[in-house]
């Protein structure tokens, strides 16, 4: 054990050096942190101002392009119509996210354990992915009717493919040596799946979930474009046809905000779950 400490001392010195550099960085950081968000905020404010000046300066009518002030006004004056249509879209996006990703994960697990299944169905998954979602939407409306179902399925479809591809890669991203170790331990396929593959696929899964967290909102909105009388998608269509440009802009901003909220939530969940360093292989 005394011998061990010699080896440990080597690494101890390393941590010491790291610690010093970290302390220096920490001393500089509060200032840097305070102004970290300044550049994007200044840039965004500048562009809004430019937008406002162009609209006012050139006398652009509000039904063609509203000024930012008018758009903000919609949130204050017509807030109710926005929120009434917000909740169905939120529900469809979340339901689609859960459905699409669950099916993708289950299929990926099946593919990894059954080469025949992978060879048979992977090309079909690729083919479905190549059909533009906007072309599938009317087909699904015909099949599933006018309720929540087609919107959820469209949101699920758009989430499905990136998660399937990433999850298959993630489940296979186990070093051959780790598999040999499990063989020496006479571990079963099920044990390898639960103890090794699922965990090591998590960084890949979250990479896909981050994509899905924004695309599921797009899926729900596209679904609402076709034969729907509620939701942010239907509000976009309605506002466009009635030349209610300020309402249209406000709806788009609300939809974007929803996608950003999903993305941030996914990132926070990832940070809580994946605490190890995925890039390194031990």
């Amino acid at each position: 054990m005394t011998t061990a400490s010699v080896d440990d001392k080597g690494t101890g010195t390393n941590t010491g050096q790291d610690g010093r550099t970290m302390r220096n960085a920490r001393a500089e950081r509060p200032r840097a942190r305070r102004y970290r968000h300044a550049p994007p905020i200044i840039a965004a404010a500048g562009m809004l101002l430019l937008w406002h000046l162009i609209v006012v300066g050139f006398g652009v009518p509000s039904y063609i392009a509203p000024s930012p002030v008018q758009v903000i006004g919609v949130f204050a004056e017509q807030g109710e119509i926005l929120w009434i249509n917000f909740w169905p879209t939120l529900f469809e996006a979340v339901a689609g996210f859960v459905l699409g990703n669950s099916v993708a994960v289950v299929l990926a697990v099946w593919f990894v354990h059954n080469q025949f299944a992978e060879r048979a169905f992977y090309p079909i998954a690729v083919f479905i992915n190549t059909i533009p979602i906007i072309a599938i939407a009317p087909i699904l409306v015909l099949i599933l009717g006018n309720g929540y179902a087609p919107k959820i399925v469209i949101a699920a479809l758009i989430c499905f493919f990136p998660t399937l591809v990433n999850m298959v890669r993630g489940l296979k991203a186990v070093s051959p040596q780790m598999l040999e170790l499990m063989r020496v331990l006479s571990a079963s396929d099920r044990e390898i799946l639960w103890k090794i593959r699922l965990q090591s696929s998590l960084p890949f899964l979250f990479a896909a979930l981050k994509i899905a967290s924004t695309t599921c909102v797009i899926g729900a909105i596209v679904g609402e474009w076709i034969g729907s009388n509620y939701g942010l998608g239907s509000l976009i269509i309605e506002a466009t046809y009635n030349f209610r440009a300020p309402l249209l802009y406000a709806t788009v901003i609300l939809g974007a905000g929803l996608a950003v909220a999903f993305f941030v939530t996914t990132t926070l969940v990832e940070r809580r779950i994946v605490k190890w360093k995925p890039e390194a292989v031990f």
Partner: peptide, 8 residues
């Protein structure tokens, strides 16, 4: 040759 530890 590699320790082959589970990183998590």
């Amino acid at each position: 040759q590699d320790a082959t530890l589970l990183p998590w």
